[in-house]
Computed example of a mutant assay.
Amino acid sequence: MTTGFHILIADDHPLMRGALSHAVSSELTDITIHEAGSLGGAIATIEDCRKQGRDIDLVLLDLHMPGMNGFTGLFTLRASYPDIPVTIVSASQDMPVVRRAIEYGAAAFVPKSSPVEQIGAAMRAVLDGEMWMPDWARDAIENSPEKDANTDIAAKISQLTPQQLRVLNMLTEGKLNKQIAYELDVTEATIKAHVSAILRKLSVHSRTQAVIVARELLLQEPALDA
């Protein structure tokens, strides 16, 4: 059994966090579980743990909680904490969502409907440095490996720094430079510099075009999301 790990469960539904906590605890031994209900809360938890001299070893991440803006949240976590593997736990089982999650940096994709044993298998694989997804998803991806426009978007977005990703996220929400500067506690000139860098890295010429690119990372809410 895998032991001695700190695992962060990030989901905005308390019942789902409880169910995942129970599943992980029943499959893995000697672990410490942390919880968050938003992307901001997840980042704060990671930072709090680091201040206390310990690291989060794995994040279980819901794609539809506050602050995520679709896959933008996954990019933000991966850029900010590249050493922490992220497992997407989602109500969606659509292949485009699974494929994009893996292409965009997730170490595993686990449907929320998975049995406890499957969740445990996924966690053990990721903690051992491997990737994991259900057999049906793996077979589909391996049999259709071609890249599409989303892959190109992923390559461009992956060039952004964590702070630039936060700025892009706020641009997508329609916030002005002044508002973004206030929320990030930096100068407006700094935000203007970030926006210029974002436009260059995304190969676009305006804020509107950058927002259009970013919105390609958004997701529709699943019909049923526990």
Rank of each mutant, 00 (worst) to 15 (best):
G37W: 11
L39T: 12
L39W: 11
L39K: 07
L39E: 13
G40C: 04
A42C: 07
I43L: 03
T45A: 14
I46D: 01
D48E: 14
C49N: 01
C49E: 00
R50C: 01
R50Q: 07
K51T: 06
Q52D: 15
G53F: 04
G53T: 11
R54P: 00
R54H: 04
D55N: 03
D55V: 01
I56N: 00
D57I: 00
D57P: 01
D57K: 00
V59R: 06
L60M: 12
L60R: 05
L60N: 12
L61T: 11
D62H: 15
L63W: 15
H64G: 09
H64L: 08
M65E: 09
P66R: 03
G67C: 13
G67Q: 07
G67M: 03
M68Y: 08
M68N: 12
N69M: 14
N69D: 15
G70L: 06
G70R: 06
F71R: 06
T72P: 02
L74E: 07
L74C: 10
F75R: 06
T76E: 14
L77D: 13
L77S: 10
L77Y: 09
L77W: 12
A79N: 03
S80L: 03
S80T: 12
D83P: 02
D83H: 09
P85V: 04
P85E: 09
V86M: 07
V86I: 15
T87A: 14
T87H: 05
I88A: 14
S90Y: 10
A91K: 08
A91P: 08
A91N: 13
S92L: 11
Q93N: 14
Q93V: 10
Q93K: 09
Q93H: 06
D94V: 09
D94K: 09
D94N: 13
